[in-house]
Design a protein around this nucleic acid. Structure first.
Lengths: 369, 369
DNA sequence: TGTATTCAGGAAAGCGCTTTCCACGGGCAG
DNA sequence: CTGCCCGTGGAAAGCGCTTTCCTGAATACA
């Protein structure tokens, strides 16, 4: 460290520092800092000189130094479960756009459902001194709560979380959308509906299943044993679950899925076994990922808007970061869900046979020649 | 800054610092640093005391301070074009796994094809003093090259980049896989093949198109005008391109796409217009994203392995970061591609009409009896 | 026993920056 | 003319850490 910078053994050419700017503009580093950070009370003449110097030597303030001294990193953490589930990239993108617009940087991490990885992730966020973290894994891993919660960072959880002053909750209204889906199917004539859940250690997966059961009950319907199958929120899980269901003595006329990836798997499973959707079996997803509308047939699904989620998360975090102390207003942020009807749902076969023949792939139902 | 930390106005409880550990273990901070960084020559007895103190107060070294003083951030940057194209999350995941295993952190950024965003991204990476950056946008945005290249960070580009000592290139062998695809189709009897490109400002999109044209030529075939349509590497682009193609007086019997998202769009477009795949038209994708095998029908595609790409990128970066100076060995890293045959390709209608009728959805397609 | 050699570990410098404190000078009222 | 206030900008502290330098003790050798 005692070695002068210019002949240091470091590979990289030393970047311009605030001192270089100060020297060039013939002012003190304090003034440079004031100018760069747009703090008032600097002579316009001086300021101009400083900006000129900044441009000339391409000065970029060092983030680490800044964070170190100011105690604020201007980073928001975002923890998701799995970046390869298309829902999450969409969420990440929305979150990032909003955060960047607010001048924050985003530090993304995926847990991959691995406690060790999660632990590492949390530690790194802590070490980086993030300004706040949104934990959007849709099922809190308790091990990560611990350290993060203790840290007293502003935190956002989905669905549920410890009741603490630094914590905000995004309350997703699963029931709303799922009830719409069940009612939509019932209105089409379906009585025999099945549900493929997500992994049941996820709070959100349980909530979705429960919403399904409740909505059925409201209509006086019950899903028989075997009609509620556990999946994994992946396409593979959807296929496997569908296979199990196809082995049942009697089949449902409609299958609701805990997320769109599962539904895509179901579509694939039914295709493999030459069952037609929606003629033989209707399929409903959950999430409304971008992909859903491009499936064959386009997927009827319950929309949980990434935009809403990201909006609320960033806002809640910002509230926690910027308003002094946690006296803050809102602790819970409601997130709506709603059904989006496309072509993977139709009258169950047998209800209106004549019609069913014609309802089919043709989106508009226009005369199959 | 003069205020003592405990009564500071900061919201967060001050995290434990190296000094706290030193005090508790009754050693100097230098010793704590040595122990924590596993630098030799510390008495085991002392070390034990230090570790005990670390555990007791939950000490985590501050990353910013560390980076500031050591000049190394242990962050690798990864720039992709669009996180919502499923190819990239897969790449990100692989890259991250490898980087984390090597003790690096990953800073992800997507340009969204927006120069301003790209500029911001690059600036942030520079400011954070990343150890190296992999630019995996598959088509270099020149504006970012500039600053990044000047910075003399170790850099990885795909396909092409400035010939500088700090730069490594991942040379993807597009021709290999695309030739296999064209030959596969030709072997099935296709003569009339079309190609839907990506956005032509992407180097890689041009390379793929050229590989197609070249492979055709090798077989004595030419794609007539109108059979090479420009897409956008998105599903929407695939649909639009397919629509344009369907308006042509004569249709190709096979369509190759510059990426899988385009192919998914094509599948959807053909479904909407009740053309059957592969009976009427064969479709081939590029990338082999995870989704491809779950499409209806499962997509025949050219595989460009994320794993290979990520592997090479991390290795090349590590080589640049860790071996002193850029005398380093390898400048170019070859990435192979290969055809994966699934069910979206078959004999063209008319070639073997009897067969074609039966070859169909059944996955195996084997011996139509 | 005396001198040379090694080694463990403490003191302190300083990474690049923000922010506090203070000095200085000009303007204004008494 | 003196005293005071205020606005501007410099000096310097210090964020949390790594690393160099150096001291003092322990060991080896003559």
């Amino acid at each position: 460290m005692r070695t002068p910078r210019n002949q240091s053994s470091k590979r990289k050419r030393a970047a311009a520092s605030i001192r270089d700017v100060a020297k060039r503009a013939r002012v003190s580093i304090a003034t440079v800092s004031r100018v760069v950070n747009r703090i008032s009370s600097v002579d316009p003449e001086l300021a101009k000189r400083v900006w000129k110097a900044v441009d000339e030597i391409g000065y970029l303030p060092n983030t680490q130094a800044r964070a170190l001294v100011s105690g604020r990193s201007r980073i928001l953490g975002l923890i998701v479960s799995e970046i390869t589930n298309p829902f999450f990239p969409e969420l990440v993108q929305e979150f990032e756009n909003l955060a960047v617009a607010q001048g924050y940087e985003v530090m993304i991490g995926s847990t991959n459902y691995d406690p060790a990885r999660t632990e590492l992730l949390v530690r790194r966020m802590l070490q980086r001194n993030v300004d706040g973290v949104a934990v959007m894994t849709f099922g809190i891993e308790e091990e990560l709560v611990q350290r993060l919660v203790e840290s007293e960072f502003p935190l956002v959880f989905v669905d549920a979380g410890p009741d603490l002053p630094n914590i905000r909750i995004l309350k997703v209204n699963y029931e709303e959308g799922i009830r719409q889906a069940v009612q939509h199917l019932a209105a089409l004539g379906h009585r025999s509906m099945a549900f493929i859940t997500g992994p049941l250690h996820l709070r959100s997966a349980v909530a979705r299943r429960d919403a399904f059961v409740k909505s059925m009950k409201e209509l006086g319907l019950t899903a028989p044993a075997g009609f509620i199958v556990t999946g994994t929120h992946t396409m593979e899980g959807g296929i496997a679950a569908m296979e199990r269901m196809l082995a049942l003595p009697e089949l449902p006329t409609a299958v609701l899925c805990s997320n769109d990836m599962t539904a895509i798997g179901v579509l694939h499973g039914l295709y493999r076994t030459t069952h037609s959707v929606p003629q033989e079996i209707s399929v409903v997803g959950f999430d409304d990922i971008h992909l859903a509308q491009f499936m064959l047939p386009p997927l009827t699904t319950v929309q949980m808007s990434c935009r809403d989620l990201a909006d609320a998360a960033v806002e809640a975090l910002r509230a926690g970061v910027e308003t002094d102390h946690r006296k803050a207003t809102q602790k819970e942020w409601p997130i709506p869900t709603r059904l989006v009807v496309r072509q993977s749902t139709a009258f169950p076969r047998g209800t209106l046979p004549a019609l069913v023949q014609k309802t089919g792939r043709n989106k508009s139902g226009k005369n199959p020649k």
